[in-house]
């Protein structure tokens, strides 16, 4: 590996190059004092450079070691995945095609035409993440990043009420602690556990996402981050498309890191756009092709006849299939009909 690939500042790299240190191996067996003299820098700085080299070197030293630091065997990953929690969508069919719900540790993108229920699903997830352990939930908290101003607290209250109602229904057998439960699970408790950020420009959006790492490490029980929508600010005011792509991919990688690090679910809502493909206009999710690589799972919400459907467009582990869902006054629910089915595609 070349020195030019190291995460060092430009002047340090230049100094290394002019002193003849071009490869990592040339730096592998050298003392910091020696390096400091060669580069004409302070001892601390030389030590710092060597630290960077050491850290990078361990990864690149693939040939020598069979166990690479930072790697994980596929078997361990499987075990871990089995413990992986899912956040229910409150719609059985949707949960089924999603393998139990929105997966933690993953970035899931959800897109659809205006009025299909993206925001509704976002709010539902922010509520459902708080379902206590006893009821098969995660008992976590939610972060909601609103870029469009479509988050309505009244609606969140309704959805929370609906969620509590359903939980109590599950628990009718144990009537004695029903009253205490009712007290404990007031919709306001649910509302208090949703952290809301209103980003008014793309700079603020980036700032929030940069800041999330610190915020989540202070609020360890956050289990979901909903961004509604990622698109809005990036669709206006942009002349420089290359810059847009760079910013978006930077954001995506930060979100992915966040999901892994704190094992929380990241849900990104996206808008749709018309694209001219093969001689006809088709709908696709906005922000272009390079963005479509950014998320692990991609779900598209669409109208199928008179039903709302969700379709898994992209996922490494789930098969492409679609399932109906309904938006009711209580939130996202199953479609009430006798012909429930999951269609394979």
């Amino acid at each position: 590996m070349e020195v030019s690939g190291l995460p060092l500042s430009a002047s340090q790299r230049a100094k290394l190059a002019s002193a003849g240190y071009t490869t990592l191996s040339s730096l592998s067996s050298i003392s910091s004092q020696h390096l400091a003299r060669d580069l004409n820098v302070s001892n601390e700085e030389a030590l710092q450079i060597l630290n960077v080299v050491m850290r990078t070197g361990r990864f690149s030293d693939l040939a020598g070691a069979s166990i690479v630091a930072g790697a994980q065997s596929a078997w361990d990953m499987l075990l871990e995945e089995e413990h992986n929690k899912h956040i229910t969508t409150s719609c059985g069919d949707l949960d089924k095609i999603l393998g139990g719900g929105i997966s933690c540790k993953e970035v899931t993108e959800i897109g659809g035409i205006p009025g299909i229920g993206k925001t509704q699903l976002g709010i539902q997830l922010a509520i459902n993440v708080q379902i206590p352990f006893d009821y098969g939930g995660l008992g976590g908290k939610a972060i909601y990043i609103d870029t469009e101003g479509s988050f309505m607290a009244e609606r969140v209250f309704q959805v929370a009420e609906g969620c509590i109602e359903d939980m109590l229904k599950l628990n009718v057998s144990q009537l004695k602690d029903l009253e205490t439960l009712k007290e404990k699970m007031h919709p306001n408790t649910f509302l208090a556990n949703i952290f809301y950020f209103r980003a008014c420009s793309y700079t603020e959006q980036i700032a929030v996402i940069n800041h999330l790492e610190k915020f989540v490490s202070e609020h360890k029980d956050v289990r979901i981050v909903v961004i509604d929508s990622v698109t809005f600010h990036f669709r206006q005011d942009f002349e420089d498309m290359a810059l847009r792509t760079r910013l978006l991919s930077g954001m995506a990688s930060k979100l992915m890191k966040l999901a892994k690090q704190f094992s929380l679910a990241v849900v990104i809502l996206n808008q749709v756009t018309m694209k001219f493909i093969d001689g006809s206009f088709q709908l696709t999710l906005a922000l272009g092709d390079s963005w479509s690589h950014a998320c692990t799972n991609r779900v598209i919400l669409y109208w199928n006849g008179n039903e709302r459907h969700a379709y898994i467009d992209k996922s490494p582990s789930l098969r492409s299939q679609s399932a109906p869902y309904a938006v009711t006054s209580k939130g996202i629910r199953d479609v009430v009909s006798n012909c429930k089915r999951i269609r394979m595609m």
């Binding site: 306001n188 649910f190 208090a192 949703i194 952290f195 950020f197 700079t203 700032a207 929030v208 940069n210």
Partner: peptide, 10 residues
């Protein structure tokens, strides 16, 4: 510093 203030839904 730039990050907008956080509020809970409550």
């Amino acid at each position: 510093i730039v990050c907008p203030p956080c509020q809970t839904a409550l």
